[in-house]
Simulated scan of single mutants.
Amino acid sequence: MSISTFFIPPVNMIGTGCLADAIKSMKDYGYHNALIVTDSVLNQIGVVGEVQNLLREAGIRSRIYDGTHPNPTTVNVSEGLAILQEHQCDCVISLGGGSPHDCAKGIALVASNGGDIRDYEGVDRSAKPQLPLIAINTTAGTASEMTRFCIITDVDRHIKMAIVDKHVTPILSVNDSGLMAGMPKGLTAATGMDALTHAIEAYVSIAANPITDACALKAVTMISQYLARAVAQGDDMEAREMMAYAQFLAGMAFNNASLGYVHAMAHQLGGFYDLPHGVCNAVLLPHVESFNAKACAPRLKDIAVAMGVDTKGMNDEQGAAACIAEIRKLSKTVGIPSGLVELNVKEEDLPVLATNALKDACGLTNPIQATHEEIVAIFKSAM
């Protein structure tokens, strides 16, 4: 086995009501002037105001950038950076799901390293740690609050840039499930399936190790048990809290084992058509794993077991097929669209999407490497 390096924020708070403790700890860090990076919805419904009040009580000033797009863009990073520089903020708070977290990472990275966010596309391209980032999560989800991954849409090239950099890891992640109770059904389903995708891709990754395996399998089990409950009953606080833990475990897995073709392909759909990331992952997941099964059937059988399937008497191939069937079943239960046609993806665009998917850093750790024709074929099967 090759050498493994494990990345995670130094401090991580999880549990209903932990937001107040997190703000107190920010005071202990000695921060005085925060830029809150969020979206307009969270600002309108008062969540941003609640955080600002807690900051005020702790003696911390704050400014707001609430222009984050659902697929955060190079323009969003520039706009937020301008506010940060104007008010000389000494830290950044991201508040929301993966979109504000990724946008905030981009802002904080450029704030300390200079240049343009495009300069940092790829792996570990920055020289210095970003401005301190405190990531307050409201979805369960992307795990962006605790990873070294930052996905930004380049508005000029219509592609999603994958920035994988140890310097974008937040210094504090906060998962207060009380902030997740109001998430609508569709967002709960999409972000939950995103977390499942993280766990499965990390488990079949060629960079998997015993630590990431343990995190991935536990995440799969918890998502299988609690996601449908969280979607059906948004105020089921046990389901919400368990999903917060599950998506964090999935984050620990993929932050260190990386991902695969589901993400490499989903990034292209999101960048090209501006589609929701979790939905793209959920639609692609069974099709990519059907392709991968010839290389990692025993691992897919393990995932079937983690999802609660009785695999006694099954060989590896049957176990892998049972895993893929169970993924489809969960997707259907939580109301994910059945194919890319429903998302208005066009078949004539598939060759260029496949070309770009093969350039995405996430594909490097897929259990087998695909040809351009094979990626097009997986896209077609998902239509």
Rank of each mutant, 00 (worst) to 15 (best):
A34G: 13
A322T: 13
C89P: 00
S40I: 12
H263N: 01
M180D: 06
L285T: 11
T197Q: 00
T197C: 15
G96R: 03
V168E: 01
P351E: 04
P276T: 14
M265I: 12
T73G: 09
H158I: 03
T355A: 10
I368L: 05
A34V: 11
A135T: 05
M383A: 10
P337T: 12
L353A: 09
A325Y: 10
V309G: 06
G15D: 13
A232V: 05
M222E: 04
M13Q: 07
A111V: 07
L330R: 06
I378D: 00
E348Q: 15
S78V: 13
V174H: 03
R118A: 11
V220R: 00
S25K: 12
I171C: 07
T139Q: 05
L300F: 12
I223S: 05
F149V: 05
A135G: 06
V174N: 02
G313D: 07
H263G: 06
P72F: 09
P70G: 01
G319A: 09
G251I: 09
P129D: 10
M161G: 08
G115L: 11
A34Y: 04
L353Q: 03
L42D: 01
S78N: 06
V334P: 02
R157D: 09
N76P: 09
G363E: 08
A320H: 03
V77T: 02
N255G: 15
Q369L: 14
K346S: 08
D90G: 11
V334C: 10
M146G: 08
K294R: 12
L54G: 08
G313Q: 14
D124P: 11
K380S: 00
D274I: 00
I14N: 03
Q233V: 06
T139A: 13
G17S: 08
A127H: 14
Q369C: 03
M146F: 03
H372W: 11
R328W: 04
N76K: 01
P367R: 02
M314D: 02
D119F: 12
P298C: 14
M13Y: 14
I60Y: 05
N315R: 15
S205R: 00
R118Q: 10
L249C: 02
T142K: 02
S2R: 08
E317M: 06
E348P: 09
I159Q: 14
V305E: 08
K185D: 01
T139L: 04
R328T: 04
P132N: 11
L131C: 13
L300M: 10
R157C: 08
A135D: 13
V75P: 01
G192N: 10
N43E: 13
T38E: 06
I23Y: 01
A320R: 08
H277V: 08
I64L: 13
M265R: 01
N281C: 15
H167R: 03
A306Y: 05
R61I: 03
S258P: 03
G96H: 10
A322N: 04
D194C: 01
